[in-house]
């Protein structure tokens, strides 16, 4: 893969996506060993720069970098000079002066990673920008689907919920359509808008309409912090029309995969019986997250040894 940054799947090619997924599949074994470390990125510095709260994405990136032997450094907006009024560019200039190799950024504004990627020589990985993209999440979702379904071309993925405010959905839409999958959306009219058809997906709204022919049902988290007033009614009404419970799941194929990017609002978008049920692959998504992020760091930073075999430290 010849690119400096991973800002989103909108401008990634199907070949690049496949390369990342193939590489991630090979990296999975590292996390299953007793000594979970390969020397691939020894001496490289990876900075996580999170302007929004995150636990799992940050941990996942941190672990991925550490398992590749990179030195990692965390920067949280809450514990930094951002609170004193420093701009993003000034923060980045300061980090730049310490000569990092890659920066993993999460920010509430779309385009913030693009701004850094344009201005600085180091690799930028987008770990979520506003309502735009969350490419590593999209990739780990696709890896999980591929584990169960093989080739995704011709498969149907239903994405249900607040698609409009979901960077997870956007990355999945771009990635899945590039791999030839069919994407169908359901959700309230405010969160699942007609204009989205221009992204190459079908918009249906009612969950009952998308379940029967879905190979995968991806339930999205309701992100109350991103909702303007008047975008949804009560949580009770949401659960009734757009939540997935065992009753609604019966309309789906028996082998359907249920996914969720987490954290789950139990009882709103997913009932506990479904979240923890046999169709749920939610924990596999988390496991795959580390592998996908290792693959991204490896491919972008150009690690010198191949994943999987041949590394002394891993033996």
């Amino acid at each position: 893969m010849r690119r400096k940054d991973m800002l989103g799947l909108r401008d990634a090619t199907a070949e690049e996506i496949t390369e990342i997924l193939d590489t991630a599949a090979r990296f999975r074994s590292v996390s299953e060993r007793r000594i979970k470390k390969v020397p691939t990125l020894r001496g490289r510095t990876v900075v996580t720069l999170f302007f929004e709260d995150s636990t799992r994405t940050r941990m996942s990136f941190d672990l991925a970098a550490k398992r590749l032997s990179a030195d990692t450094l965390g920067f949280s907006a809450s514990s930094s000079s951002v609170k004193k009024g420093e701009t993003l560019m000034d923060t980045a200039r300061n980090i730049d002066a310490m000569r990092p190799d890659a920066i993993i950024i999460r920010h509430s504004c779309a385009g913030a990673p693009h701004m850094l990627a344009r201005a600085f020589p180091w690799t930028v990985l987008n770990a979520g920008d506003g309502i735009n993209e969350h490419p590593s999440q999209g990739l780990l979702d696709m890896l999980t689907m591929r584990d169960h379904l093989g080739d995704l071309a011709g498969r149907t993925v239903a994405i249900v919920g607040d698609v409009y405010h979901s960077r997870v959905a956007r990355s999945n839409i771009f990635g899945l359509t590039k791999l030839g999958a069919r994407v169908v959306l359901a959700g309230p009219g405010t969160m699942c808008r007609r204009e989205m058809e221009s992204l190459g997906v079908e918009v249906r709204h009612q969950i009952e309409d998308v379940l029967p022919d879905a190979d995968v049902v991806m339930m999205l988290r309701i992100q109350r912090e991103r909702l303007a007033p008047g975008m949804m009614s009560t949580s009770r009404e949401y659960a009734r029309f757009y939540g997935l419970d065992l009753d609604k799941l019966q309309r789906a194929r028996p082998e359907v995969l249920v996914m969720h990017p987490g954290p789950i609002n139990r009882g709103v978008e997913l009932s506990p019986e479904v979240a923890d049920g046999e169709r749920s692959v939610i924990m596999e998504q988390v496991t795959n997250g580390v592998a996908v992020r290792m693959a991204l760091l490896f491919l972008l930073l150009g690690g010198e040894t191949q994943p999987g075999g041949g590394d002394d430290a891993a033996a």
Binding site: A110, G111, I131, N132, L199
Partner: peptide, 12 residues
């Protein structure tokens, strides 16, 4: 402007 492009690039 709200339309195809804003939808594509994730800006409100």
């Amino acid at each position: 402007h709200e339309g195809e492009i804003s939808m594509q690039i994730g800006l409100r």
